[in-house]
Design a protein around this nucleic acid. Structure first.
Lengths: 300, 300
DNA sequence: ATAATAGTGTCTTTCAGACAGTATAGT
DNA sequence: ACTATACTGTCTGAAAGACACTATTAT
């Protein structure tokens, strides 16, 4: 192209002289929020095991936040796409390979990393932990699944002239064996006239590196809204599953009980009956189902 | 903190020696997708004006893509948050100030910018163009609202062993007076077993810089899904509006007609009646409504 | 028998879509 | 009178929530 700019340069000349180092550039990293749903130890052998939501964290093997827990992640290489970087870092730090992740949010606050300006693109995934082997690698000293518990602490609604402000405070606790980390998150939803915005703040955080408590909390919120209209919950059950098992997964993510009869009716178009049954426990055997990939024609 | 890492350094020593330049870093930019809904010229003075969806583009004043049209945007400064960068760049390039934008997606393909590796965080907003004055500034040679038309070209559904692939091809045309830019977008939705993913490809693009056709197309999709459950459409009408006017806005964004009676019933909880009316046209006067900011208690 | 889960049928309420109609303005 | 829009009432069918009931297993 022979168009010249104000300095009289063609595009080729402009690009040849372009100095990417003229301005100070941030570093870009990826962070992966992997959730799974695991069985709790049953207190009664006749009962079905309860399920718990878990998130994968690694123990940092170097500064900053040495010894604290963080989401797996790392810097994006200069010749590598974001999705590729996420897949590579997950493999390097946790040994997990081949899971599908979707972009969650990009965190760019100044000062969120003590080393230098780091902008982090976070990814979200729901996986069946039983089908994965996790082992710490790279500069991770350890890698573990942490049980996620979120407790609502307080709701403050303030009316303003042109709307209202809703402040919600929650305690987020992450636990793996004897290790417990977490803190308090404050979510501020502002409705002013016609625009509404959401902000998230860390009020307290112990044992968790960077702003990762915020990232995990946002991932939780996205997970809950997404599980209602999409089929992501199926990535949490093995190939063959009972409807009660699938329902427990939904209940764990949503944090409330679902009516078995209605649940059955609602997921019916998404599953196929097999002629296998699971024989276990002191009760009627459960039919095994599988996901029906021909289930289609949805909005998105 | 006095914990030492493998090299025997404390956190303070580590940070003092940290060399952010040891690895080549990408540049980070923000791009803003601003949509509005504008009146078309009425062909019949008794009829209500039709509405059109529009997107704001600037004409590039320098290489690369000199003279082509692009989303307003620019590089993030090293001491500036992402949201702040988006607000600043929008002000500098278009003169628009004080609009609320939400993060859309972060685009990080290698080679999406001929200058250097650029990762771009895109922002989405719906604004009432009548309440804004747009004027090109900075290195923008011009700034204009382009009417958006999307035409569906082709749908290909291929069954695979464990699911299916849905390929949709659409023509996206952006027009402002005598200027027309646009191209063809291919959206690939892959369902394989339990995971589904979406990819977007530019098959052809003329007159538009970078991968901005893809960004606009994704913004369109997000806009359409969001308008169904949120109140963003209200940012497109003035303070006082008639229900027909509001309905036209919804119809324009969704690209389909809505039943007036049902629409009235559905938006009723979100609006308040005023005792003013709009006197115009050869028909019964319309009551003016305003947004009811006390409308609350929704899912998210 | 009992406890526990698996699975079915159906009632009711809510909500979305469709349609039919009346009301009120300008020309 | 005619046309165009404003506005209201109601029917229908689908979907969501709640409940009652039967079936089957191990102990």
């Amino acid at each position: 192209m022979q168009i010249r700019n104000r300095q009289g340069l063609t595009e080729a000349e402009f690009l040849a002289r372009y100095d990417a180092g003229a301005f100070e550039r941030p570093s870009v990293s990826v962070d992966m929020v992997l959730f799974t749903v695991a069985n709790a130890e049953p207190d009664d052998h006749r009962k079905l095991p309860d399920k718990m939501l878990q998130v994968l964290l690694i123990k940092r093997g170097d500064h900053p936040y040495l010894g604290q827990w963080a989401l797996p992640g790392g810097f994006v290489n200069i010749n590598e796409g974001l999705d590729a970087a996420a897949a590579r870092e997950l493999q390097e730090e946790t040994g997990i390979d081949g899971v599908y992740m979707e972009q969650l949010y990009t965190w760019g606050d100044v000062g969120r990393d003590p080393r230098t300006r780091v902008i982090s693109c976070s990814y979200l995934s729901l996986v069946d932990a039983d089908s994965l082997r996790v082992h710490a690698g790279d500069d991770a000293a350890d890698a573990r699944w942490f049980t996620v518990r979120e407790t609502h602490l307080q709701t403050v609604r303030t009316m303003t002239e042109r709307g209202y402000v809703l402040e919600e405070r929650s305690q987020v606790t992450l636990q793996a064996g004897d290790v417990a980390v977490g803190g308090v998150i404050r979510v501020v939803r502002t409705v002013e006239g016609k625009v509404s915005r959401v902000e998230r703040h860390i009020e307290a955080s112990a044992g968790l590196a960077f702003d990762h408590l915020k990232v995990i909390d946002y991932g939780l919120e996205r997970l809950r809204t997404k599980v209602e209209w999409s089929d992501i919950a199926f990535t949490l059950v093995p190939d063959r599953f009972t409807l009660a098992e699938l329902r427990k997964v939904y209940e764990t993510i949503l944090g409330r009980e679902l009516h078995a009869a209605n649940f059955r009716r609602d997921v019916e178009p998404m599953v196929e009956e097999t002629n296998e049954v699971r024989r276990e426990g002191g009760h009627r055997h459960a039919k095994l189902f599988r996901f029906n990939p021909r289930w289609a024609e949805r909005k998105s």
